[in-house]
Design a protein around this nucleic acid. Sequence first.
DNA 1: TTAATATGCAACCGATTAGTTGCATATACT
DNA 2: AGTATATGCAACTAATCGGTTGCATATTAA
Lengths: 107, 107
Amino acid sequence: MLVAETFKALGDPIRLEMIERLSDGSRRSVGSLFDGLGLTRQGARKHLQVLADAELVTLEIKGRQTEVSLDPTTLASAKSFIAGLELQWDRRLVALRDFVEKNDASG
Amino acid sequence: MLVAETFKALGDPIRLEMIERLSDGSRRSVGSLFDGLGLTRQGARKHLQVLADAELVTLEIKGRQTEVSLDPTTLASAKSFIAGLELQWDRRLVALRDFVEKNDASG
DNA sequence: TTAATATGCAACCGATTAGTTGCATATACT
DNA sequence: AGTATATGCAACTAATCGGTTGCATATTAA
């Protein structure tokens, strides 16, 4: 899975709200998940599908309702992508500091 | 700044490629940053503007060229947003484990 | 069995996005 | 001064997105 797709799925306030509602690990029916979002059920459903396609949430049919739960692994890989960038950045800072120390006339 | 906008800006392979090219802390002219991306300069420029609007990169005019550099703070706040979600998740796991231990008949 | 509940799918529409081409402009080199 | 370089801005188009309305369907309750 492309990490860009994960970020894209996270790039909307309504979808982030859904993720936050699920972040405590609870399972919710789609109906309760959509409550109070300020858009129609079908509109919310499209957002949910984006999260499902990005494998950020899992859908499971239980009788007449569908249960939604968070899949934390995709979220984790997005986080480590950013962490990887920051690692690069930190290496540069260390290299820069070493260079300054080595060439510091006052040392 | 809304974190959703940050994620949205990161949600594109070309923009991620630009971020990665800048992640070592180097400053690059827009021309060199756009090299080999497989789209026109103006197309790439639009992507760069999205990153700039989201405050993921900083643009600085230097003579006839514009220098681009990464702004790591926005990236960091995106990462901590995810970390916050994971913290919620972990709390749930701990609570669940405690519950199981307390109610474990074999204990 | 009839009715209510929970949900899905498709069509449609306006707004935004991603990309292009074309033109303008300022800086640097000769 | 004249030319090449590095860049920006605007207009246009096709595709995608975000949202709606309408209809279909399966499960549960009376």
